[in-house]
Measured scan of single mutants.
Amino acid sequence: MEVRTIKVFTTVDNINLHTQVVDMSMTYGQQFGPTYLDGADVTKIKPHNSHEGKTFYVLPNDDTLRVEAFEYYHTTDPSFLGRYMSALNHTKKWKYPQVNGLTSIKWADNNCYLATALLTLQQIELKFNPPALQDAYYRARAGEAANFCALILAYCNKTVGELGDVRETMSYLFQHANLDSCKRVLNVVCKTCGQQQTTLKGVEAVMYMGTLSYEQFKKGVQIPCTCGKQATKYLVQQESPFVMMSAPPAQYELKHGTFTCASEYTGNYQCGHYKHITSKETLYCIDGALLTKSSEYKGPITDVFYKENSYTTTIK
């Protein structure tokens, strides 16, 4: 009895394709271990004539594949690729409408935090270190965002349907971005203890939790000093293409032309909904596939993004 075979390709990165001759009487799992086709788990399936010449994702289970996976995804987590594939199996079914010149995501599976993050990423200057993220990001900007969303979920250790947080998501993504040249110098002034300067680099240099107003941050924000008295913390120097200011959701007025974009969060910790506000020729609110415009805006804002380049204080 002759062994019926077909020729397929296996890959971990969709760049390096490895030619395989597979036995049609055995499952993919018996031949390769966990195997995925377009995100779908085909591990328990036997090869079919229609699979001839198709590319299958496999887990990096030998040295060659491990090197290829690390170079593309910059992670050695053995569960990463499987999590990416199972997320992709959902995100490829989502709709990605162009809204006001940006790629958004039609609401499904509690994905409003991903839509808000995706919209924000198209408006701030950011370059990702893992080629996987950078490639998928370019495709997302062009309207094909399924891979990018699935990668975000995998890097953030999230599953489809789980509630997510924009600030946490951005923080994970910033860790995989090139923020080497970003720098922030802060000064804390206390009447009792004097003053202390701190220099922050990388992710810490672009994120701040405690106030939404970048102007206020430049002037000074009140913080408790270690001595128990009130101290003032203010920005001395900022070198970065953008800054992200966050605070627990509270009524906040966004003035046209003073910011790049913002995240609105309605609801409580267990259950809520994100919308995205962007400042173009007027203010726009993007909620999944829905767009509304207004000249002014007041609502429960939790993150505001500002364009920056270089700032030095005039406070002496």
Results as ranks from 00 to 15, higher is better:
F148A: 07
V188D: 00
K275P: 02
Q20L: 10
T159D: 13
Q238F: 02
A132C: 03
N16I: 09
I315K: 15
D63K: 08
V166D: 06
G272H: 03
D135F: 08
P249D: 02
G161E: 00
C149Y: 02
V189H: 09
A87F: 05
Q270W: 07
E296F: 13
G39L: 07
Q30N: 15
C156S: 10
P47F: 08
V206S: 03
S171W: 15
D165H: 01
D135H: 13
G39K: 06
T27P: 11
M26Q: 15
N89A: 12
K183A: 05
A136T: 08
R66Q: 12
F56Y: 10
Q251F: 11
S263P: 00
L17Y: 08
T91E: 04
L118D: 01
A146E: 07
L102H: 08
V8C: 12
L186E: 15
K191L: 13
S294Y: 15
E281A: 02
K307F: 05
T76P: 11
K316F: 15
T169Q: 00
E52I: 12
L291K: 05
Q98H: 10
R141N: 03
F217W: 01
R141E: 11
W94C: 04
Y269K: 08
K158D: 06
G82Q: 14
C271W: 11
G164T: 01
Q122A: 06
M244F: 02
I45T: 13
T266E: 11
F9V: 09
L212R: 01
T103F: 09
Y96P: 08
D77L: 04
T27H: 11
Y297W: 06
F80A: 03
L59Y: 03
T91L: 03
V58S: 06
L173D: 01
T64C: 13
Y138C: 15
E168Q: 11
D180M: 10
T312M: 14
T120M: 04
L179F: 14
C271V: 05
M24Q: 13
E281V: 01
D41G: 10
M26I: 14
T11H: 00
C271D: 06
Q31I: 10
G39Q: 09
M207Y: 08
N111L: 06
I315Q: 15
Q195R: 09
S25C: 15
V21G: 11
K218R: 05
H90Q: 15
V203K: 14
L102E: 05
D135S: 11
Q237A: 13
Q31L: 12
T116Y: 06
K93P: 08
N268M: 05
T91G: 04
I286R: 00
K183W: 15
S246D: 07
C285F: 02
F32N: 13
R4G: 13
K54Y: 11
N89Y: 14
T43N: 07
L119S: 05
H90F: 11
Y252D: 05
K183T: 09
